[in-house]
Amino acid sequence: MPVPSRTQLQGGLIVSVQAPEGSPMRHPDVIAAMAEASLRNGATGVRLESPEHIGAVRNRCPNALIIGLWKRTFPESSVYITPRWDDIQAVWAAGADVIALDATARQRPGKDDLAALIQRSKEDLGAPLMADVDSIENGLIAASLGCEWVGTTLYGYTEQTAQLNPPGYGLISPLRAQLSDQVTLICEGGIKSPDSASQALEHGADLVVVGTAITGVDLQVAEYLKTLNRQSG
Results as ranks from 00 to 15, higher is better:
Met1Val: 14
Gln10Thr: 06
Gly11Phe: 02
Ile14Arg: 00
Met25Leu: 13
Pro28Phe: 02
Ala32Gly: 07
Met34Arg: 12
Ala37Val: 11
Ser38Pro: 00
Ser38His: 05
Leu39Ile: 11
Arg40Ala: 07
Arg40Gly: 02
Gly42Glu: 03
Arg47Tyr: 08
Leu48Ile: 05
Glu49Arg: 10
His53Gly: 04
Ile54Asn: 05
Gly55Val: 02
Ala56Leu: 10
Arg58Trp: 05
Pro62Asp: 05
Asn63Phe: 10
Lys71Asp: 10
Arg72Tyr: 12
Arg72Thr: 15
Arg72Ala: 12
Glu76Lys: 02
Ser78Leu: 12
Ser78Arg: 12
Tyr80Asn: 15
Thr82Leu: 12
Pro83Met: 02
Gln89Tyr: 06
Ala90Ile: 03
Gly95Ser: 05
Gly95Asp: 06
Gly95Phe: 07
Asp97Cys: 07
Leu101Ala: 07
Asp102Glu: 10
Ala103Asn: 06
Thr104Leu: 14
Arg108Ala: 00
Asp112Val: 10
Leu114Ile: 08
Leu114Gln: 07
Ala115Arg: 15
Ile118Trp: 00
Gln119Leu: 06
Ser121Glu: 04
Lys122Glu: 14
Glu123Leu: 14
Leu125Gly: 12
Pro128Val: 01
Asp134Trp: 06
Ile136Trp: 00
Ile136Gln: 01
Glu137Ala: 15
Glu137Tyr: 04
Gly139Lys: 03
Leu140Tyr: 04
Leu140Met: 09
Leu140Cys: 07
Ile141Gly: 00
Leu145Ile: 01
Gly151Asp: 04
Thr153Leu: 10
Tyr155Asn: 09
Tyr155Thr: 09
Thr158Pro: 04
Thr158Arg: 06
Glu159Asn: 08
Glu159Ala: 15
Gln163Thr: 13
Leu164Thr: 04
Leu171Asp: 02
Arg176Ala: 09
Ala177Val: 05
Ser180Thr: 08
Val183Asp: 08
Val183Met: 07
Thr184Ser: 11
Gly190Glu: 08
Gly190His: 11
Ile191Lys: 00
Ile191Val: 15
Ser193Gln: 11
Pro194Asp: 09
Gln199Ala: 10
Ala200Val: 06
Glu202Met: 08
Leu207Glu: 00
Val208Ala: 00
Val209His: 10
Thr212Tyr: 03
Ala213Glu: 06
Ala213Leu: 04
Gly216Trp: 00
Val217Leu: 13
Asp218Phe: 13
Leu219Lys: 15
Val221Lys: 02
Glu223Leu: 08
Thr227Glu: 14
Asn229Thr: 12
Asn229Cys: 06
Gly233Tyr: 00
